[in-house]
């Protein structure tokens, strides 16, 4: 078991209740997307996964450690957290220092730090930016630096808040590929995203949230083709799903639960026969 959320409530000091009786189990090695409208409580939920926020009520267990009793530093070795806004985690003068900061603080051996850094910068296409200041970089580049500085710690659980936001097509594909690889290496991945097209192609388990509650939890294919859930979470169906619905409007035998391009092609060719 990786993460267990039990009857979690969270109320901000301002009095706003952001989470309302959330229960959720994330197994080791799973790949989960948490989806929902702005303000649904997604980010508040994942901030509990590394102890940044402590439950107002209920419990969050990470590898059987209760986050109430553990420090964020302790959790940082297990849980890597990549913020939505990279400026919230970048503060050093060069990209290289930024990436080395975590492992240096944990006294990893210098050679290993160098080796791990080489790996992530190659992976994230940051090699020729190592000497630059993070603040001279574009939004998309800064986001990759923030991701690199977390990945270099080799966390067992990786939490990403809107990893594809502001990324161009190539970086998006790289991120999708990288997340898949990290997941195949056995890491647990939890990400928050609005990007239905990304989720349609990557097909993680989807947890849908509205107003601080989980309203659906299932396969991407089931959640993203459910009109009621989409409406409640203010998500739009993937383009391919919308096309399937439009076709099914006129040809009732056409399946409505189609989310990927390849599924759509198969269905179209079958339908043609």
């Amino acid at each position: 078991m990786s993460i267990t959320v039990k009857n979690l409530d969270y109320t901000y000091p301002s009095g706003v209740t952001a989470l309302n009786n959330v229960s959720l189990k994330i197994n080791k090695g799973e790949y989960i997307a948490i989806m929902g409208a702005n303000g649904a409580g997604k980010t508040t939920l994942i901030k509990h996964f590394n102890g940044l926020l402590k439950p107002t009520k209920g419990h969050v267990l990470v590898n059987d450690i209760d986050t109430i009793t553990s420090s964020v530093a302790e959790m940082a070795k297990i849980v890597g957290f990549v913020f939505q806004n990279p400026d919230h985690q970048l503060f050093l003068t060069t990209v290289e220092e930024e990436i080395k900061f975590g492992p240096t603080n944990f006294d990893f051996p210098e050679e290993q730090i160098q080796e791990d850094m080489e790996k992530v910068v190659t992976f994230l296409n940051l090699k020729n930016l190592l000497k630059r200041s993070p603040f001279s970089l574009s939004e998309g580049e800064r986001k990759r630096v923030a991701l690199a500085s977390v990945l270099v710690m080799n966390p067992e659980i990786l939490i990403l808040d809107e990893p594809t936001m502001g990324q161009d097509a190539i970086q998006k594909r790289n991120i999708a590929k990288m997340i898949n690889e990290l997941n195949q290496q056995g890491r647990t991945i939890t990400l928050v995203t609005h990007d239905v097209e990304f989720v349609a192609e990557c097909q993680p388990r989807v947890v849908a949230m509205t107003e601080g509650r989980v309203i659906a939890d299932g396969m991407a294919k089931d959640v993203l083709t459910n009109l009621e859930i989409l409406a409640k979470t203010k998500l739009r169906p993937p383009q391919i799903t919308a096309l399937a619905w439009e076709i099914a409007n006129q040809e009732q035998s056409f399946p409505k639960d189609v989310i990927t391009i390849s599924e759509m092609k198969t269905n179209l060719l079958e339908f043609r026969r």
Binding site: I170, I240, K265
Partner: peptide, 21 residues
């Protein structure tokens, strides 16, 4: 187009793939 960072909408990708076939 993709090398220039332009992500083709999946609708367009579907049509392009069907045309390729």
């Amino acid at each position: 187009a993709e090398a220039y960072g332009v992500q083709m909408p999946s609708l367009i990708q579907l049509f392009t793939q069907l045309m390729d076939e």
